[in-house]
Amino acid sequence: MNWPLVPQQLITGILNGGVIGLIALGIVLIYKSSEVFNFAHGHMVMWGAFLTWWFAGAAETGSELLNLPLWAAVMGALAVSVLLGLLIERMALRPMTGQPLLSIILMTLGLAQLLEGLASIAFGVEPKSNFPAPFSPGDVLVIPFPGAFGDAIRLKYTLVVAFGVALLGALLLIWFFNRTRTGLAMRATSENHEVAQSVGINVSRVFALSWALAGMVATLGGVLMAILTGVSLNLATVVLVAFPAILLGGLESLGGAVLGGVLVGLSQALVQAARPIEVRNSAEIAPYILLLIVLIIRPEGLFGQKRIERV
């Protein structure tokens, strides 16, 4: 290990992980209400980022008319992504109710391909570097830390703010699921559709609502990712690390998803502090190695429930 780099990477990893955790929450959200593993979530994240970029006035798409400030662009993207979420639920997932797991997973995979193709038609295939950034790259928070590289930890404002927003979003969601009627209705629906219906929960409305909500969470995550890394079609693959995150945390647990995200972020950042170049380059697969280890040692994740199955 390259010890002087460790403190810096530790903090960066946690901050990055918060954003991954928020994206993972979108997947857990869908799972908790409808037991669907949404492999298209990465593409919804990408769409959120692209929509924001488009609303913010991108020269290439010829939408200088809109040229909105970032917050307004995010609002616009959120509105569109709610519609997108509702549309996906109505057109793709509603007909799949009661189908086996494999079919539903394949449906979301097909959806992911469709969203990818549509995004490349709508926004073009080139990566966009002109995402509206709230801070310039030079805005750095310097925390003195003796022993670290350069005796200080440097944090980009962007990263700190992204983490803050992600954490706020995560807390809001956790509160929503534990304290509001609608959130509790979603959890009940996830347990058993028929029982939920018999106590007066409108199950189809719960599904629609959870997809709309997932669309919003995805867009928020997409904006945060875009601020950190820029927008490209590749974003959908990058945020697939949210899947290891939810497995680490356990599928049922919202807090676990956030913690899983942080662990994923840490694993990606800490390998970069290692000395051998092979290990340093392994940031993109570190979460998946972690995933394999967890699957073998503790398949239900850190906070998941162990389910007993009957024949």
Binding site: Q99, Q113, G117, L118, S120, V125
Partner: peptide
Amino acid sequence: FAASLLTSFRPIFFGLMLMLFLI
């Protein structure tokens, strides 16, 4: 537009076909 059209038709055709078959 040509470049993006060329790469986007493959996933769109495939995704749509897969979804229609599943339904």
